[in-house]
């Protein structure tokens, strides 16, 4: 648990539920911005804060939310958040204030209950909620947003994650339903699905997060309960590939044993096996977990690269797309962590 010198914690006086890098045109690294979903239980208020990386303790602007944020995503043009009461809030990145934000309120017409699946795919946003509904939200042409219901599972399945693969395709995941692939060109129903591969000898688990690499749109990487991380290749949909939890010989120590909250392809870590890194190989994946692990896992690699082992849960993290060496994470104990991976460390590998 040695403290990494390139890791800084910034304490806040409230819970940090989610954190993301904002895409910015800033040339100087210190001018970069973070977006954080915060919640203060003492006054039961929730906000999205816009924070400068140079001093993440003092917000530049904040957007009030009706309830606790359950998902937060940034696109080049907007910042979106969904809440535990089923609403969606979109704020244009150009003017981050309550006046310019657009909201789709929760309820029978949209989502009922928490919405954890949220992603931006070009022009449209997708939301997938615990109520089993899937919506695609786009501009109505006149500044309004229009939500179209793709699917209503009526609570029979609950969704926890959503990720676009292309402007027409996206993946969702949740409790029991594993991962599902949707293609809007083929109608409003899942095209194919995969129940996943779970640790501890379990047959079913809950998907918490999905990521799809922009250059390999046929591969989803999935993080879920019981420390499960697996990849799902659409070309072999019946054979998910375990990345953690189940070793080749069944005795490998998994990266973590608790909930894997988020997964992201790590564009910074070079694959350890460059020669054989054909399109079949899964690229390195970064994960964060309830037991405080931030690590990079690779297919077939028995020793994952552990970046952080915190005494508290890491609820959320994000890799800066412009500077992939920089990672920001939301720690359970009311703080934001900023990790800078040095070039030297990588040269050694």
């Amino acid at each position: 648990m040695a403290d990494n010198p390139s890791f800084r914690r910034h304490p806040h006086p409230f819970s940090i539920d989610l954190v993301r890098w904002l895409p910015s045109s800033a040339t100087s690294p210190s001018d970069r911005l973070l977006a954080a979903a915060v919640h203060d239980p003492s006054v039961a208020s929730s906000y999205i804060h816009l924070l400068p990386l140079a001093d993440p303790s003092s917000p530049l602007a904040s957007l009030p939310l009706p309830s606790r944020a359950t998902a937060l995503r940034c696109s080049p043009s907007a910042l979106a958040a969904t809440t535990s009461t089923g609403s969606l809030h979109l704020a244009p990145s150009s003017s981050f204030d309550a006046g310019a934000a657009v909201a789709v309120s929760g309820g029978a017409g949209f989502h009922v209950g928490p919405v954890r699946g949220l992603d931006c795919g070009g022009e449209e946003w997708v939301t997938a909620g615990e109520d089993g509904r899937v919506h695609v939200i786009g501009g109505g042409g006149d500044g309004r947003v229009v939500a179209r219901r793709v699917w209503d599972g009526k609570g029979m399945a609950g969704y926890e994650a959503a990720k676009w693969a292309s402007p027409a395709e996206f993946a969702t995941g949740g409790a029991g339903c594993g991962v599902q692939w949707w293609d809007q060109r083929k109608g409003d129903a899942p095209v194919t699905q995969c129940s996943g591969i779970w640790g501890h000898g379990l047959v079913t688990g809950m998907v918490h997060s999905i990521d799809i690499h922009p250059s390999r749109k046929h591969i989803c990487v999935v993080g879920g309960s019981s420390g499960t991380i697996f990849a799902w290749d659409l070309r072999w949909p019946q054979q998910p590939i375990p990345l953690s939890g189940i070793g080749l010989h069944g005795i490998v120590q998994p990266v973590c044993e608790s909930e894997v909250w988020e997964v992201l392809f790590d564009t910074y870590t070079q694959s350890s096996d460059i020669i054989s890194s054909t399109s079949a190989r899964i690229l390195p994946v970064m994960i964060c977990s309830e037991d405080g692990i931030l690590a990079v896992v690779e297919q077939g690699d028995e020793r994952p690269l552990e970046l952080l082992a915190e005494p508290c849960a890491i609820n959320s993290f994000d890799i800066d797309t412009q500077n992939p060496s920089d990672v920001v994470c939301a720690l359970e104990w009311e703080s934001i962590g900023v990790l800078t991976r040095g070039r030297d460390a990588m040269a050694e590998e």
Partner: peptide
């Protein structure tokens, strides 16, 4: 029935 899909997927898994 389509709505039951998720549930059936759960129930259908060979969970012992």
């Amino acid at each position: 029935f389509k709505q039951w899909e998720g549930l059936l997927e759960l129930l259908g898994s060979d969970i012992g």
